[in-house]
Amino acid sequence: MKRPNDFLFHALVITASLSLAVLSLLVIYSVVMRYVFNDAPDFVEPIALLLVIVIAMFGAALKVREGGHIGLDSLVKNLPPKGQIVAHAFQHMCLIALAVAIFFGSLQMAETTFHDRIPILGLPEALRYVIPVIASVCIALFSFENLLALFAKKHN
Rank of each mutant, 00 (worst) to 15 (best):
I96V: 14
S106Q: 03
I120E: 04
H115V: 13
R3Y: 09
A48M: 09
G71T: 09
S74Y: 11
R128H: 11
I134E: 00
L95D: 00
A101N: 06
K153D: 11
T112G: 02
K77T: 08
V100K: 11
E45F: 11
K77Y: 06
N78Y: 06
K154W: 15
A21C: 08
L79E: 03
V76A: 14
H88P: 00
V36Q: 08
P4T: 08
A16E: 03
T15Y: 03
A87K: 08
L23F: 09
L150P: 02
I28G: 00
I131W: 06
F43L: 11
T113Q: 08
P119C: 07
G59A: 10
V130H: 05
V31C: 03
I134G: 00
Y29I: 07
L107W: 12
K154N: 12
E111T: 02
I85D: 03
S74P: 00
V31K: 04
V44P: 01
A99S: 15
L23K: 04
F104E: 03
V130D: 01
A60I: 06
R65L: 01
V76C: 11
G59Q: 02
A97Y: 09
M57S: 13
A140V: 07
N156S: 07
S136C: 09
A87I: 05
P124S: 13
A87S: 13
M1K: 13
L26W: 13
Q108C: 03
S19G: 03
A152M: 09
Y29E: 07
D39P: 10
L121R: 05
Y129K: 06
L150K: 07
R65T: 02
A152G: 00
F58N: 04
R128G: 11
P119Y: 06
I85V: 12
K77W: 05
L95G: 05
P46S: 13
L98I: 09
I118F: 06
G83W: 04
V44M: 07
L51V: 00
I85L: 10
V76R: 03
A149T: 13
T113S: 14
I131T: 09
F9P: 04
A99W: 03
D42K: 15
D116Q: 13
G122Y: 06
A101L: 15
P119G: 04
F114E: 10
I139R: 14
E145F: 10
I47F: 11
Q84D: 06
L49R: 14
F9C: 08
P81R: 09
L79K: 12
F9H: 11
I120K: 11
F9M: 07
Q91V: 04
N38Y: 12
V13D: 03
H155A: 10
A149Q: 15
L150I: 06
F37Q: 08
M57P: 00
F144N: 03
F142C: 15
I55Q: 02
E125H: 09
A89F: 11
L123Y: 13
C94Y: 03
I28V: 15
V22H: 00
L75D: 01
F151I: 04
D42H: 12
I96M: 15
L98W: 06
C138F: 14
D39Y: 15
N146T: 00
I134D: 02
T112H: 05
D42S: 14
L51K: 01
D39Q: 15
A89W: 11
D6G: 03
S143H: 04
A101D: 01
T113V: 07
A110G: 01
V54T: 12
G68A: 10
V54P: 01
T112I: 05
S19D: 02
I118E: 01
A40T: 15
H115I: 14
V32Q: 04
I134N: 01
N156H: 13
